[in-house]
Amino acid sequence: MLVLSRRVGESIIIGDNIQVRVLKIENGVVKLGIVAPDDVRIYREEVYNAIAQHNKSVISQETALESVMKLKEVIKSDKDRR
């Protein structure tokens, strides 16, 4: 992990097109401004983690549904053979 110290008004540049600027420090809270291209998604970590967890649960549900549908086809074809 890279650790940098910045004062209010100072920035860091990530890659060629992302700028993170310290806007304000008050009561232990740092306010950041981020300038990035429109196609770069920027999330707070807790929001990103919630989205990732939701996506994992949807994938699990889809996988479970696919398994049930395959099992249904196996049972149907087994009944058709009788």
Rank of each mutant, 00 (worst) to 15 (best):
H54Q: 11
N49R: 14
N55Q: 14
G15D: 08
R81I: 14
E10W: 09
E46D: 15
V29W: 06
I13P: 02
V30N: 02
V47Q: 10
N55S: 13
S77Q: 15
I75T: 10
N27A: 11
S60A: 14
S57D: 07
G9Y: 09
N17I: 02
Y43V: 01
A50N: 12
K72T: 08
V68E: 09
S60M: 05
V40A: 02
I51F: 12
L4M: 06
L71M: 04
S57Y: 07
V8F: 02
V22E: 04
I75G: 06
P37M: 01
K79F: 15
I25N: 05
V47N: 10
V3G: 04
V30H: 05
V74Q: 12
S57N: 12
V29S: 11
K76N: 10
G15P: 05
E26S: 14
V47I: 13
V20A: 10
M1Q: 07
R44I: 02
N55R: 12
E73V: 00
D78R: 14
Y48I: 00
I34S: 03
S77M: 12
E26F: 11
Y43A: 03
N49W: 09
Y48F: 15
K70A: 05
N27Y: 10
A36S: 05
R7S: 13
Q61T: 03
E46A: 12
